[in-house]
């Protein structure tokens, strides 16, 4: 399973979708949910998820990005 497949499986998971990104438009034909799509959603959970799975940030940078998304 590639990183993109993991990301796709979570984004399209009905439980996550309902709880964290109900407004995000799911298109199961999309192979890879890219950076632009995620950023456009403006959803802090999706952005965190993308950073966490796809980006190869150091733990400190990743955490800073996440805190920024959650306005903490």
């Amino acid at each position: 399973m590639r990183k993109q497949e993991i990301l796709k499986s979570i984004i399209e998971n009905p439980e996550f979708r309902e709880k964290y990104w109900p407004k995000f438009k799911i298109n199961s034909e999309i192979q890879d949910y890219n950076h632009v799509l995620i950023l456009k959603s403006n959803n802090k959970f999706l952005i965190t998820l993308y950073n966490l799975i796809i980006e190869n940030d150091t733990p400190i940078i990743l955490y800073k990005k996440i805190l920024k998304s959650f306005e903490l």
Binding site: M1, R2, K3, I6, L52, I53, P59, L62
Partner: peptide
């Protein structure tokens, strides 16, 4: 042979986040 290594890497990141 499986994707467990990829998942494990993500789980490690999730773990450290959880602690923080």
């Amino acid at each position: 042979l499986t994707s467990i290594n990829t998942i494990d890497k993500v789980v490690d990141v999730v773990d450290s986040l959880q602690k923080k």
